[in-house]
Design a binder for these strands. Structure first.
Length: 217
DNA sequence: CGCCAGGCCGTGT
DNA sequence: ACACGGCATGGC
């Protein structure tokens, strides 16, 4: 799949953004939200000098909500972002570099305990924010695998199906050289989103999908 | 107007 | 553990 998708779409130039913190904020804001809307919110934060730990820390809840309103769910996401900053302050002295030094295996459960962080956001933070070789899945990959019959029991939105997808990626890509896998997982997830947007929407057909398979239903 | 978006949470079963 | 509805806004 990776080979075919890369041949069809090329490098996606995804995260990390200019800073790790910006990447992580993007991961929160893009939850069930179009990236074009996220960019508006990120720009709002940037022009207010609030796209940093200190910036978010200094904003009141209402101010933060106002800045991120364009990307939706502002009430929940403002709480979640403030909780993340408090988390980094508390456990890593306000240093994302220090946070990135903790092994992913140890970091993941801590992230999952945070408000507004589920498995996908946690893995996005680990992969794109901290630079770990962490495979990640999303709704598009779930649909693609479901429609290609690659896994059983891929119910929508369940923890089990998410974990099954991540396990499948670990198997498929192997786990011998983590250094290379960081780049691989980075690119593959972005490609998944690219093909999903184009050919694997919720109700839509697979017309013109570059993935070679007649199994797509 | 309707559908969709780079999910997550609370509640009921 | 899962199903299901709610959460909000912008693009097409």
């Amino acid at each position: 799949m990776h080979t075919q998708l890369f041949a069809a779409y090329g490098p996606q130039h995804w995260w990390p953004a200019s800073t790790a913190f910006e990447t992580i904020v993007g991961a929160y804001l893009t939850q069930n939200t179009a990236w074009t809307s996220v960019e508006i919110s990120l720009e709002n934060l940037r022009k207010t000098d609030a796209l940093t730990l200190q910036g978010i820390r200094n904003l009141g809840r209402t101010q933060l909500m106002e800045l991120i309103r364009p990307s939706g769910f502002a009430t929940q996401k403002a709480v979640a972002l403030h909780a993340f900053v408090a988390f980094v302050d508390q456990h890593f002295s306000g240093s994302l570099e220090q946070m990135a030094r903790m092994p992913a295996q140890e970091m993941r459960p801590l992230l999952l305990d945070l408000r507004g962080v589920g498995p996908e956001t946690a893995d996005a933070i680990l992969l794109y924010g901290c630079g770990h070789a962490q495979p990640m899945a999303d709704e598009y990959l779930r649909r693609i695998c479901e429609r290609h019959g690659l896994l059983e029991d891929l119910s929508k939105g369940t923890r089990r199906s998410y974990d099954a997808l991540v396990a499948l990626l670990r198997e498929a890509f192997g786990h011998d050289d983590p250094a290379e896998h960081r780049a691989l997982f980075n690119e593959f997830h972005a490609l998944t989103v690219a093909v999903g947007k184009a050919h694997c929407k919720r109700t839509a057909q697979c017309e013109g999908c570059p993935l070679a398979s007649d199994l797509c239903r």
